[in-house]
Amino acid sequence: MTTASHPPASQSATQARSETRSEAPPSPSPVLETRNLTKAFGGLVAVDDVSFSLQAGELLALIGPNGAGKSTCFNMLMGQLAPTRGAVWLKGENITGMNPRKVWRKGVGRTFQITATYASMTVGENVQMALMSHHHRILSIRPRAHRLYRDEALALLEMVGMADQAERHCAVLAYGDLKRLELAIALAHDPAVLLMDEPTAGMAPRERIRLMQLTAEIVENRGVSVLFTEHDMDVVFAHSHRIMVLNRGQLIAEGNAEAIRNDPRVQEVYLGGGTVFAQEDAADA
């Protein structure tokens, strides 16, 4: 089997799907929902009774100071961590405690705060890997992996603006490029939900804006629902449909940019804590 016999399925499928989505009335039921989600590490309650929902086609931001519990929350959504209490529902199905592989197959993709890519492979192969997994080809030993789903991978890389780097060694990429690569990987199985943990950390301001615009386009064109965390408030206010604020594991506010900006509790958390609504690159990134 060579790649030639594989039509670039992913793209056409996406098109078809986004069309049907835009024609259908917006669904009232959320794509992703948590109920009383809680995670305790020993005595420390990192996520405390968090309930929220992500609507179809929504770009939802989850913000909060360092250590607020954002990444922990993400890890429970996709199954990297099992919650201490509470539940996660995906498209009406309870996926609490399901392992990340299964959650992924059900249509959730994610990027990590500390990027997770395959350092020994090329950029293109990183994306092909996800495509092979999507097409259940992981255990096959016959074809040459380097040629499998190459066109689809290039299309995805094109989307994030990295097609020209497809042959580069992943280990030598700049951090911002790694983030974009992760996004391409996360989109490989055409997910319904995309979780992005600090997608713009380590990028220059112009790059950040570009990436968030790209994300917005993806939401628009592909009908993906996105939940993301971010420290750069400009990015958050400019690009999210809705914002949730997490502090010490608890959801303290929720609403549009205006509401959040004016919320006294949020102001206290940020201003009182000595930090301003400004760039605050994740130190651990």
Binding site: R101, R105, F112, A116, T117, M121, H134, I185
Partner: peptide
């Protein structure tokens, strides 16, 4: 290379 990434892509 990355257990996390692999598991998160099925």
């Amino acid at each position: 290379d990355s257990d996390r990434r692999a598991e998160a892509t099925g």
